[in-house]
C-alpha cells in the first residue's frame, strides 16, 4: 500500500488507464469514446515521461568538447516515445472525429446500437 503512495505518478497513470479503458469500452456515445481513448493514451505518456525523468540530470544534448559523462544525462528514448505517441494520438483523434461526422450524416445519431461490439452483421 505504501508503495502506491511513494510511486504516486505510476499509480495515477494506472488509474487513468483504467478510466480511459472503461470509457472506451462501456459508453455508447462516440465522442465520449474518443475522449476515453485520449485519456488512455495520456496515461501511457504520463507513465513514460515519469520513467524517463531522473531528478538532477540534464537533457542529453552534447556540445562540442563538453561531455559531462554518462551519469550527467537522462535517457532520451522515453521522451522520444512520448513525442511519437502524441503525434499518433492526435492523428488518430482527428481521423476518428472525421469518421464520427460521417457516421452522424448516415445514421442521424452519435450513439452506437446495443450489439455494436457483440456480433457480426
Amino acid at each position: 500500500m505504501e508503495n502506491l503512495f511513494i510511486n504516486y505518478y505510476e499509480s495515477i497513470s494506472i488509474i487513468l488507464f483504467g478510466i480511459g479503458f472503461s470509457i472506451l469500452l462501456l459508453h455508447r456515445n462516440l465522442i465520449r469514446k474518443i475522449i476515453g481513448m485520449n485519456i488512455m493514451d495520456v496515461s501511457i505518456f504520463l507513465y513514460l515521461a515519469v520513467k524517463g525523468y531522473i531528478s538532477g540530470r540534464e537533457v542529453p544534448i552534447v556540445e562540442e568538447n563538453i561531455h559531462m559523462g554518462l551519469d550527467y544525462y537522462i535517457n532520451p528514448l522515453p521522451g522520444g516515445l512520448v513525442l511519437t505517441g502524441i503525434v499518433v494520438s492526435v492523428c488518430m483523434t482527428a481521423f476518428a472525429l472525421g469518421l464520427v461526422k460521417k457516421y452522424y450524416e448516415k445514421y442521424q445519431t452519435l450513439d452506437l446500437d446495443d450489439d455494436f461490439f457483440r456480433k457480426g452483421s
Binding site: 488507464f17 479503458f21 472506451l24 469500452l25 462516440l30 469514446k33 481513448m37 488512455m40 493514451d41 501511457i44 507513465y47 513514460l48 520513467k51 516515445l81 505517441g85 499518433v88 488518430m92 481521423f95 476518428a96 469518421l99 464520427v100 460521417k102 457516421y103 448516415k106 445514421y107 455494436f116 461490439f117 452483421s121
Partner: peptide, 27 residues
C-alpha cells in the same frame, strides 16, 4: 455506404484499443 462506416468505426476503435495494449506491453 451506411454499413461501411459502421464496420470501419468498429475496426478503428478496436485497432486503437489494440495499439494501446501494444504500447503498454512495449513499454
Amino acid at each position: 455506404a451506411q454499413e461501411n462506416y459502421r464496420a470501419g468505426l468498429k475496426y478503428l476503435f478496436l485497432s486503437i484499443f489494440a495499439s494501446a495494449f501494444l504500447l503498454v506491453g512495449g513499454v
